[in-house]
Design a protein around this nucleic acid. Structure first.
Lengths: 182, 182
DNA sequence: TGAATCAATGGACAATCTGCCCAGTGCCTG
DNA sequence: CAGGCACTGGGCAGATTGTCCATTGATTCA
C-alpha cells in the first residue's frame, strides 16, 4: 500500500472501500478479455464458485468500480478519424457551466474537463477530416462565453485508453491477495 | 451527409462501410443504457426479430464499430481521484516509440497520444492525490528520452467521455433511416 | 424482364445459463 | 464463544442462446 495517500485510515474498512482484491482484478481482467462471458463461465475460469463471482460482480457494481459494460464504440470506425484536443479560454464572468453545457450540445465533443493552468477548459473532439475539424472548432468558438481556442491534433495514439494495468496494480499495493477457501 | 469528407465516394458501398443505420444507432443506445441486456430482450425493445439484432451486432463487431463490451472501470472508485494531462517534450533523436513504450509501463498512465504543436506527447494520468501525482510525474520524467513535462490538473469533468451523441448523429447525416419490413 | 443476392421475419430445437433458493464450513471480530 | 461474513456446492424452474429452416420483400445486374 505504498502509494496510498497518507491521509488514508488504512483500516480494513478503508481497504475494503478503496481497493480491490486479487480476485476482483482477475475477474475484471477476464471480463475485459472476453466481455460477453457469463457468470458461470467466469466462475469456471477463475476456479471459484458461481455465487462468488456473482457476489463480487454485484459488489464491484455497487461500489462503482465497474460503472457499466460498454458497448465501446470506435469513432474512427464511423469515419471520425481525426482526434484533437482543444483548450478553451472563456469569459470568466459567465462561469464554466453555461460553456460546458453549450459544448455538450456538439456531438463531436467527446469529453470536457475544467483545468488548471493558462486555459480554462480542455476538450477532446473528433472529426471526419482536418477540414471537418475546422467546422467543429467553429461550432466550439460559437458557443457563448468562449473567448478563444487552441488545438492540437492527435497524430497517433501509441497507448489507447486503458485501465487494466491500474486494476492489476491495485491488489499488489493496497489490496489483499485472494486465497481460495479449501 | 453534410459532414462527410468530399473525398468520400458516397456510393452505397461506402455508406455501408462508414456509416450506421438508424437501427444500429438505436441498438447501440439501448445497449449503452442497459448493457447486460440479452439479444432477445433487445429485439423486443426495438421491435424487430431476434435474428436481426444478432446480425446487426455481429456486423457492428466485425466492422469494428463496436470494439468490445467493457467492463468500464472507474479509476476514481479505486482511489485514483486525481486526473491530469501531461504534455511531454522528448529528445527527438530517439523517436517516439521507446518513450511511449516506457510510458506504457506506468499503470497510472491511461492514455498516450503523439500530437502536433509545441510538445510531442500528451498523456492522461491518474493519481491518488496531488502528492501522488508528483510521484507519477517523476516516473514519467524518468522515462528515457523524456526531456521535460508540463502538467495541467483536471479539476472537474463537466462532460465525461461519451460517444452516444455521435452515434445518434451519424444516421441523420450519413446513414439511411431504418424502415421495418412488413 | 428474370435470376440472384441480401436482409429481415417468424418459428423451432436442444443445450445452456440465469436468478434464486438452501445448508454447511472456515475465518475474523467483538 | 457466538455472530457475522464470504465462500462452497448443490438443486430448481424459467428464460435465453446458438443454430437451424422456409418465406418474403427489396435491390442489383445481366
Amino acid at each position: 500500500m505504498d502509494n496510498l495517500p497518507s491521509a488514508c485510515p488504512k483500516t480494513p474498512e478503508f481497504l475494503y472501500t478503496m481497493t480491490i482484491d486479487d480476485l476482483d482484478a482477475r475477474l475484471i481482467a477476464l471480463l475485459h478479455a472476453e466481455p460477453r462471458l457469463g457468470v458461470l463461465e467466469c466462475s469456471r475460469r477463475l476456479g471459484v464458485a458461481r455465487g462468488t463471482v456473482q457476489a463480487r460482480l454485484d459488489r464491484l457494481l455497487a461500489r462503482g468500480v465497474i460503472t457499466g459494460f460498454g458497448p465501446d464504440v470506435s469513432p474512427a470506425a464511423l469515419g471520425y478519424t481525426v482526434t484533437a484536443f482543444v483548450t478553451l479560454e472563456i469569459r470568466q464572468e459567465a462561469g464554466h457551466d453555461p460553456v460546458s453545457h453549450g459544448l455538450a450540445r456538439i456531438p463531436e465533443v467527446l469529453e470536457v474537463h475544467t483545468i488548471t493552468g493558462g486555459s480554462d477548459l480542455l476538450c477532446r473532439v473528433v472529426a471526419r477530416t482536418n477540414a471537418d475539424l475546422q467546422r467543429v472548432i467553429d461550432q466550439i468558438v460559437d458557443v457563448r462565453g468562449v473567448r478563444r481556442t487552441s488545438s492540437v491534433i492527435a497524430l497517433d495514439t501509441p497507448v489507447p485508453y486503458r485501465v487494466l494495468p491500474l486494476v492489476e496494480d491495485v491488489p499488489r499495493h493496497g489490496g489483499q491477495q485472494y486465497v481460495r477457501s479449501p
